[in-house]
């Protein structure tokens, strides 16, 4: 199967994005020069461990970086032909929600407990769509039905605490898609859900993507989500994308030692594994990165060059890049 998005137009193009935070320990380069693009209908997975910069990447795409201490210091984010880093805050708030939307991890805290869910979905529609007030509720019900909320007419009057975790996450999803954005970012959308509810939710996202030809970005630490959902994967480590490619290429022939090690360290559902591979050590502190490759200290193939110079992106194939000196 060829990547679904191929041939479709590019909706999002990120070029050399850098987001730094100034802290009392020095400058933390949370995102340090990442580039990728995304086509309509395509799903990109951004995988990495905590502190690798995946959440900061996503917040940068939404321009929600708290400034200070954080700042997008360089690069460009071109969304449907427009560099959103050049927009004023007012212009950006029109883009947010209508062209690019975000589903965050914890449905317990991302909904306002003192408003009904009807109110909260209404709000998003009201801000971004010029439709008459009396029709807004109609639209809200339609969106709630789209995310399979049973008995939507009575549910709109419920407060978040009256819903289960899975339902709340659907409501967050409903707000996300209510204005038919071009790009939907899902940040670990299923980690707080039970297994069977997670399966329902992932299927829902896939269906919605097909209906609306959404470009999806999945931010996750779980390769299972990637295997199930994504067309392409970007693996992040210490603020950079170390490997990116078609999902099958990454799973079948990972070429960066970090990707290889991560894949080998996950237990498998389908087969017995005698002993898991464990990556020794911890990721480096982001305010004090080594001059060379950030993975060098934990890498089993480390060479002298790795400690001196950060490797550029090497092409493994036309759709597969990896930043490792072994490919030089």
């Amino acid at each position: 199967m060829v990547s679904k998005g191929q041939g479709n137009e590019i909706v999002l193009e990120v070029e050399d994005l850098r987001t730094y935070f100034s802290t009392r320990w020095g400058t933390v380069k949370a995102v340090d020069g990442i580039s990728f693009d995304l086509r309509r209908g395509e799903t990109l997975g951004i995988v990495g461990e905590s502190g690798c910069g995946k959440s900061v990447t996503m917040l940068s795409l939404m321009r929600l970086i708290p400034t200070p201490p954080g700042e997008i210091v360089g690069g460009s984010i071109v969304l449907e032909g427009q560099d959103i880093l050049q927009l004023t805050e007012n212009e950006m708030s029109k883009v947010r929600g209508s062209q690019i939307a975000l589903i965050i991890q914890d449905p317990m805290t991302s909904l306002n407990p003192v408003f009904t869910i009807g109110n909260q979905v209404n709000e998003a529609i009201q801000i971004h769509q010029a439709i008459p007030k009396r029709n807004i509720m109609q639209q809200t019900l339609e969106v709630l039905r789209k995310v399979n909320i049973p008995a939507a007419e009575s549910r709109v009057k419920d407060y978040p605490h009256q819903l289960s975790g899975g339902m709340r996450q659907r409501v967050v999803g409903a707000i996300g898609i209510s204005c038919e954005p071009a790009v939907l970012i899902a940040d670990e959308p299923t980690t707080s859900l039970d297994v069977t509810i997670q399966a329902q939710y992932l299927k829902l996202l896939k269906d919605l993507q097909q209906q609306q030809n959404l470009a999806l970005i999945f931010v996750t630490h779980d390769f299972g989500v990637v295997a199930k959902m994504c067309d392409r994967v970007a693996v992040m480590y210490a603020g950079r994308i170390v490997e990116m490619g078609d999902v099958r290429e990454i799973f079948n022939s990972p070429s960066h030692p970090y990707t290889e090690a991560l894949l080998a360290s996950v237990p498998k559902l389908e087969e017995d594994v005698d002993r898991l591979f464990a990556i020794e050590g911890q990721p480096p502190a982001l305010h004090d990165l080594p001059p060379g490759c950030s993975f060098a200290d934990r890498c089993p193939y480390v060479m002298e060059r790795c400690r001196e110079e950060y490797p550029p992106d090497f092409h493994v194939s036309a759709t597969h890049n990896s930043a490792c000196w072994r490919l030089a």
């Binding site: 297994v195 069977t196 997670q198 399966a199 779980d222 390769f223 299972g224 989500v225 990637v226 295997a227 199930k228 994504c230 999902v247 099958r248 799973f251 996950v266 498998k268 559902l269 389908e270």
Partner: peptide, 8 residues
């Protein structure tokens, strides 16, 4: 419902 270990 559990997530697979490979896309295929």
């Amino acid at each position: 419902a559990a997530l697979p270990s490979h896309p295929d």
